[in-house]
Simulated assay, not measured.
Amino acid sequence: MEPKWLEWAKQLQAISQAGLTYSKDVYDLERFELIRDMSVEILAEYTKMDNKTIKELFANETGYATPKVDVRAVVFRENKILMVKENSDGGWSLPGGWGDIGFTPSEVAVKEVKEESGFDVKATKLVAVLDKKCHPHPPSPYHIYKILIQCEIVGGKASEGIETDAVEFFAENELPPLSIDRNTESQIHLAFKHLHNPQEPVAFD
């Protein structure tokens, strides 16, 4: 579970964002700006990021605050799982990224696999819908839902993408250093559980 200070900071951010969107009174708007500043200060204190960077993260958020959606593709070949090496942190992750407007979750999974690994796939099964705060990821300023979708290779070949440095398949007992912000070891084991038992129910939360 995420720490309390992070939960409070996110709740303050959500309250301020909604208030700044729907309030008309100038004094209320000032109060909501103060609440947003408080959430920024909390995050800056505990994450060691500077206030300006954190405020810029929130500056592009308008309207009623809702969770972001991160879609990850689960792809197997010969009992090994497809992973890509992220050039941002050097860790390995399931191909994926933010959900795109106009795309279904499965379309995002297919697109991300192609862009990050070079393989053509088709989506076959929903593996999990997870709340990032319930898993051992590093702290994040956003509330994020992670959708894991199993896919089957139908073509293409391994090739690096703009955001990836390498493409490989790994056995469950030979996992590389992971990009923990994107996926955890327990989530990879969950994916293998679905490989070994196709009737495994969808995991959630």
Rank of each mutant, 00 (worst) to 15 (best):
W92C: 04
E2Y: 08
D70T: 00
E107M: 12
S179P: 09
N87K: 14
I101G: 10
D120S: 15
A158T: 07
K24C: 01
E86N: 15
I35D: 03
P201H: 09
T104D: 13
K157A: 12
H194L: 00
V154H: 01
V84E: 08
K68W: 02
F169K: 11
N183T: 05
A123S: 15
N79H: 13
R182P: 00
V110F: 07
C151V: 04
A9K: 01
P95W: 03
Q11E: 10
L6C: 11
D165Y: 02
A128T: 11
K122H: 02
F192V: 12
K55A: 15
Q11I: 10
I147S: 08
S106A: 10
P3H: 03
E168Y: 04
H137M: 09
V74M: 09
L20K: 11
V84K: 11
E163S: 13
K48L: 14
F192T: 15
H137Q: 08
E107L: 08
V154Q: 04
P141R: 02
A44D: 06
R77G: 02
T104A: 15
N87D: 13
L175K: 11
L57S: 13
A158Q: 08
E152S: 12
P198C: 02
F76C: 07
F76K: 13
Q187T: 02
A128F: 06
I162S: 12
C134H: 10
E45Q: 11
E45C: 09
V75C: 04
Y64Q: 07
Q11S: 09
V84L: 10
N197Y: 08
K122L: 09
S93F: 01
E7Y: 08
L43K: 01
A191M: 08
D89Y: 04
T21A: 09
Q17T: 01
E33T: 08
G156C: 07
E160T: 15
M38P: 00
E168I: 01
M49A: 14
I15H: 03
A166G: 05
G161M: 02
V113E: 12
E172Q: 14
D120K: 14
T184F: 04
E56A: 12
S16Q: 02
L34P: 00
K111G: 08
L6Y: 05
A171W: 03
P95N: 06
Q13F: 00
I153H: 04
S16L: 03
K85Q: 15
S93C: 07
R36K: 14
A14C: 00
Y64C: 03
